[in-house]
Each structure stands twice: as structure tokens, then as C-alpha cells.
């Protein structure tokens, strides 16, 4: 394959990775606080729909904000149900996912009945980086991206700094690994966990909006296509660390981008194989990394 095609695949991978990274950063906080949010898929698709709706009214920036807010609201609901009313975390998470998938389709049907043309909105405009984006190879990959890719990178750094330099970051680690001691120390366990979940929800909603308002410019039912679950896999692969999440998201996005673009070239393999490749590889990597994590876990558990 030509260099141009590889450049296009890698540049596309970065764009596809952005929503995964954003939602993954949030879920990283949630999991380091000892919780899990299985509602990511639902929060993302509601963010995607709301993003288009708000984007059609007030522009792409409003779309992103609206997506973020919807994710936040769903996380508030989840926190209330699970940590105040003590419903099951797994069941409520899956419930939010199912609700999001169904409700987004229903609302979209109300807004745009079948047969009508799809509503298209303006996407977030690219910033012109001038001569930088005209550099060969690195130009289109690094400097021709949507601002949302740069936002994802910035938030990765911010997430790392929050875990490293803030009291909240320490509290999240404390609550996630040893809530009983943390409570005795005086850490507010409930509040720390709730804050992490709200961050996770907001970033999942933002990630959903980035899919629609960021690149595609329109909504279709089931547009997230299981990315919420991929985010969960990526966070587990990346051990909830920002850098690990970024690498996991890039791996998945690269394979997805490869699958999309290599359909145009003839390798004489069925396109279904390409499309399932990202998921297959994610599964394999997940198994491998979990095994090594498990081994490490058993090592620390064994008495010295």
C-alpha cells in the first residue's frame, strides 16, 4: 500500500481515537476510585444525539457542551441510584446503556421521522496551522487534526496531573484501593467516588458528542456501535493510567481506521473480516494484559 494510504489511516486513527480517549479518561477516574460505569455506551449515545440537536440550534461548541451536560446528568442519576439508594452498580450501569440506546433512537424518530432527510450540522472547524500542516507525512497526521484531538491530548495531560499533584487524585487512589482506611484517615469516601463518577459521565457524554459534532455532523441510531464497551476494555488494558488508555484507544482506532480505508484497496479478503479486526484484537490484548495484571495481583497478595 502507498504511503498516502498509511498517512490517511494513521491520521484517521487519531481522529477516531479522540472520543475513546475522552470517555476513557473519565472511566479511568471512575475505576481508580474503585467503581465501574457500565452506562458509558448509553451516556455516549445520548451525548451524541444531544450534541447534534444543540449543534443544529446553536453551533458545534454548544453541541459539545450539551453532550457533556447530558452525560453528567445521567451520571448524577446513576450515583443517586447506586450509591445513595444502593441499587446494583452493574445492573444500573447496563440499564443506563439500554435506556440510552433506546431513548436516543426514539427521540431521534420524534425529531426526524423516517423518510425525512437526516439533519446535518456543522462540525467543529479545523484550525489552520499554516505551513505545519503541509509538512510531508507528519503534517496531515499531527497538524491537520480536528481541535478535538488536541483537546483529548490536553485532557490526558490534565488527568495525569490531577492524579499526581492534587489531593483529589490521592483521595481517588485511596478510596479505590482501601476505602475503610481512607474513611478512618478522614477522606470523604462517598463524595470522592461520586466526583469521579460525575467526571466519568461528563467525559462519556462529551466523547459521544465528539463522534457526531466532531467528525460526522449527523446522528444515526446506534452510531456509537459499542464504543462504550471498547472504552471499558481500553481502560482495563491501560490499567486506568492516562498513557495506557491513550495507547489502548490508539490501537483500537488504528485497526478501525485500517478497516475503513483498506476496504477501498483490494486485498481480496472479506470486508467483514476487516470490520471485526478491531474488536478481535482488543479482545486478545485484553486477555493478555489481564493475565499479566492478575499475575501481579497474586504476587502482591502472597504473604512476604
Amino acid at each position: 500500500m502507498s504511503v498516502e494510504l498509511w498517512v490517511a489511516i494513521i491520521a484517521g486513527a487519531l481522529a477516531l481515537a479522540a472520543p475513546l480517549v475522552l470517555a476513557g479518561i473519565g472511566e479511568g477516574f471512575v475505576e481508580r476510585a474503585g467503581r465501574i460505569n457500565l452506562g458509558i455506551e448509553g451516556m455516549m449515545i445520548m451525548g451524541a444525539l444531544t450534541g447534534v440537536w444543540a449543534g443544529s440550534l446553536a453551533g458545534p461548541l454548544a453541541g459539545l457542551v450539551a453532550g457533556l451536560l447530558v452525560g453528567l446528568v445521567l451520571a448524577v442519576v446513576m450515583n443517586l441510584l447506586v450509591y445513595r439508594l444502593h441499587a446494583n452498580e452493574i445492573v444500573i450501569g447496563l440499564g443506563i446503556t439500554m435506556l440510552g440506546l433506546g431513548l436516543s433512537t426514539y427521540l431521534y424518530q420524534l425529531w426526524v421521522p423516517s423518510g425525512q432527510t437526516n439533519v446535518a450540522v456543522a462540525t467543529v472547524p479545523r484550525v489552520d496551522l499554516g505551513p505545519l500542516s503541509e509538512l510531508p507525512v507528519v503534517g496531515p497526521i499531527l497538524f491537520g487534526q480536528s481541535p478535538l484531538v488536541y483537546l483529548a491530548v490536553v485532557l490526558l495531560v490534565v488527568a495525569w496531573a490531577v492524579m499526581r499533584f492534587t489531593r483529589f487524585g490521592l483521595a481517588v487512589r485511596a478510596v479505590g484501593t482501601d476505602p475503610a482506611s481512607a474513611a478512618l484517615r478522614g477522606v470523604r469516601v462517598e463524595r470522592t467516588g461520586a466526583s469521579a463518577l460525575l467526571i466519568g459521565g461528563a467525559l462519556a457524554g462529551l466523547g459521544g458528542a465528539v463522534i457526531t459534532v466532531g467528525t460526522i455532523g449527523s446522528f444515526t441510531p446506534d452510531i456509537t456501535a459499542g464504543r462504550g464497551y471498547i472504552v471499558l476494555a481500553v481502560v482495563i488494558m491501560g490499567r486506568s493510567r492516562p498513557i495506557g488508555i491513550a495507547l489502548g484507544a490508539l490501537l483500537f482506532a488504528f485497526l478501525q481506521s485500517f478497516a475503513l480505508l483498506s476496504q477501498s484497496t483490494s486485498l481480496q479478503l472479506p470486508s467483514e473480516l476487516y470490520q471485526s479486526l478491531p474488536y478481535l484484537v482488543t479482545l486478545v490484548v485484553l486477555v493478555i494484559t489481564s493475565r499479566s495484571q492478575m499475575r501481579r495481583l497474586f504476587k502482591t497478595v502472597r504473604p512476604a
Binding site: 492534587t166 489531593r167 490521592l170 487512589r173 484501593t177 482501601d178 482506611s181 478512618l184 484517615r185
Partner: peptide, 24 residues
């Protein structure tokens, strides 16, 4: 009696984990 140190954090971090200012 059972101590209140968080095992994954160092003593410095255990000292820092509660407090009023956001940055450590």
C-alpha cells in the same frame, strides 16, 4: 488499632490525602 493508613499510598501521600487545599 487497625491503623488508618491507605496501603497503596506512601506515608507522605497518606499525610497529604486529607486537607483543604486542592493541590499537594
Amino acid at each position: 488499632q487497625q491503623l488508618s493508613l491507605v496501603g497503596e499510598l506512601s506515608l507522605v501521600e497518606n499525610y497529604l490525602v486529607v486537607g483543604s487545599r486542592p493541590f499537594v
